[in-house]
């Protein structure tokens, strides 16, 4: 019966509004409502894209702690609301089932991961840092002075056994703390992908 009604209205050339009136609601309103439903009750929060160095603005639509929708920030002067395919796909990272969500440990020689707690992971790493730091501490470089030909002992107070890679993928504050952390524990061996 539904089908025939629809067919009838189509054939009779009546307007959509008339059709809607016949159905008891206005599709224009319903359509707008449908779109609104997706974003209804969401909070718009600006953020920054995480791919190239454009620093394009993104708007995140968040509801009950979930990312519902992501689009270009129309107020951002660089991208004026547009996003490239990569940036547009960042919606999926927030809810990806492939994210690592717990600290993990792979034991020497093991063929799989085991989940561990943050506390445990931090303890393991802190202890290892101390162990390697203490064992590889270098007080001085022995350098031959080019002018005198004599070997000089130059104080360096440096850790030789720890290196830190990172990172152009983290925030300024994190990148800064990486450097500060390295310098305080005594390793100058901090590099990252800006080099390559």
């Amino acid at each position: 019966m539904d089908v025939s009604r629809r067919g009838f209205f189509k054939l009779s050339g009546l307007s959509i509004a008339a059709l809607a009136a016949g159905l008891g609601f206005d599709p224009a309103v319903a359509e707008a409502k449908g779109y609104a439903l997706k974003l209804e009750g969401t909070k718009k929060i600006p953020s920054i894209c995480h791919f190239c160095s454009g620093g394009c603005g993104m708007l995140l639509y968040v509801k009950e702690g979930k990312l519902i929708h992501l689009e270009g920030d129309p107020d951002h002067p660089t991208n004026e609301g547009t996003l490239c395919p990569k940036a547009a796909s960042l919606l999926s990272v927030a809810n990806s089932p492939d994210r690592v969500t717990k600290p993990r440990r792979r034991a020497p020689g093991a063929d799989k991961w085991e989940d561990i707690s943050w506390e445990e992971a931090l303890d393991i790493v802190a202890k290892k840092t101390k162990e390697v730091r203490d064992a590889s501490w270098k007080v001085a470089d022995q350098i031959v002075n080019a002018k005198t030909g004599l070997t000089e002992s130059l104080t360096v107070n440096r850790v030789e056994g720890i290196a830190f890679l990172g990172s152009a993928e983290v925030d300024n504050e994190e990148s800064y703390l990486i450097k500060k952390f390295c310098q305080l524990i005594g390793t100058p061996y901090n590099e990252h992908q800006a080099r390559i």
Binding site: C52, S53, S167, N172, S175, N190, Q193, A194
Partner: peptide, 14 residues
């Protein structure tokens, strides 16, 4: 090339 490569160079992860 990266979202914060200017910043990470400023912060001297080098």
């Amino acid at each position: 090339g990266e979202p914060n490569v200017q910043g990470s160079t400023d912060m001297a992860n080098l």
